[in-house]
C-alpha cells in the first residue's frame, strides 16, 4: 500500500501519496496549478515553467517536483501569477498565433491560459518569425507557426512498434518539431487523433478535421481552464 505524506498547499494541510507529482497531487486537493508542457501519462519535462510554484520558499516547476513529507507549497502569489502571465505573453509574441483562423481556437490550452490571465496584449514585441506549414503527410498537418515546442508529441506519441513519430530538428531558437516520414508512414486515424489531442495548441492537426464544434460549446468557451480543480 502506498504511504501517504502530509504537506501544506497554500497554508492548508493536505495528504498525498509519497512521491506523487505535485501538479497531480494539488489537483486531487482541489488546487489548480497551470501547466502547458505537462500532460498526464507522459514523463514531465519542466520545459515551459508555467507551473512554477514556491516549494519551501524556492521556485520549482510543479510538474517535475514530487511530494515529500512536510513540504510547504505556495501556488499563488501576485508574483507567481504575474510570472505565469508573462510566460503566456512570451509564447504569444514568439510564434505566429492567429486565434481567429486557428482550428484549435476554443480548445487551445495556451489560449485558455491567456483567457485565465486576461492577456489583452503581450508586453513583449511580436517577432513574426518566418515558419512553415507542413502538409505533405497524408494524415497530419504540422503548423510550425503555432508550435510552442512543449515536446508533448515527442514524449507521448509512439507508433505500434513503439517508435516516436515526432522528433526535434535544429537547435536553440530555430528548433522545430518534425514528423518522421518513416515511423509515421502507416499511422492509424486514432493515432493521428491522439497526436492532435496531445498538442496543447493547434500545431498538430488531422487533415480534414477542424471547426467541428460550434462556438459556445468548445472546451474553454464558458469556464476558464482549471475550473474543474478549483472553481
Amino acid at each position: 500500500m502506498a504511504s501517504f505524506v502530509r504537506f501544506t498547499l497554500d497554508g492548508r494541510e493536505c495528504l498525498a501519496e509519497e512521491g506523487a507529482q505535485l501538479v497531480a497531487a494539488a489537483k486531487e486537493c482541489g488546487v489548480f496549478i497551470p501547466t502547458l508542457c505537462n500532460c498526464p501519462g507522459i514523463p514531465p519535462k519542466g520545459a515551459c515553467r508555467i507551473c512554477t510554484v514556491l516549494v519551501n520558499g524556492m521556485p520549482h516547476t510543479a510538474c517535475t517536483t514530487r511530494v515529500v513529507e512536510d513540504m510547504a507549497v505556495v501556488t499563488r502569489t501576485p508574483e507567481l501569477e504575474a510570472f505565469r502571465k508573462s510566460v503566456v505573453e512570451i509564447l504569444f509574441a514568439e510564434g505566429n498565433h492567429l486565434c481567429p483562423s486557428c482550428e484549435r481556437s476554443g480548445n487551445c490550452e495556451l489560449q485558455a491560459l491567456a483567457y485565465r490571465y486576461r492577456v489583452t496584449v503581450p508586453h513583449f514585441p511580436y517577432l513574426f518569425p518566418k515558419r512553415d506549414v507542413e502538409a505533405w503527410h497524408p494524415k497530419l498537418v504540422k503548423d510550425h507557426n503555432r508550435c510552442i515546442q512543449c515536446k508533448r508529441c515527442i514524449r507521448g506519441i509512439r507508433n505500434d512498434k513503439g517508435q516516436a513519430i515526432f522528433a526535434f530538428g535544429k537547435r536553440g531558437d530555430k528548433v522545430v518539431i518534425n514528423i518522421d516520414p518513416e515511423t509515421s508512414k502507416d499511422i492509424s486515424d486514432e493515432l493521428a487523433q491522439q497526436a492532435m489531442d496531445i498538442c496543447p495548441v493547434g500545431a498538430i492537426l488531422r487533415k480534414g478535421k477542424g471547426f467541428d464544434t460550434p462556438i459556445g460549446r468548445r472546451t474553454y468557451d464558458r469556464a476558464p481552464i482549471g475550473s474543474e480543480a478549483a472553481p
Partner: peptide, 8 residues
C-alpha cells in the same frame, strides 16, 4: 468578464 473575453 470571462464570457466576453475571447480571441476569436
Amino acid at each position: 468578464e470571462y464570457r466576453t473575453f475571447k480571441f476569436d
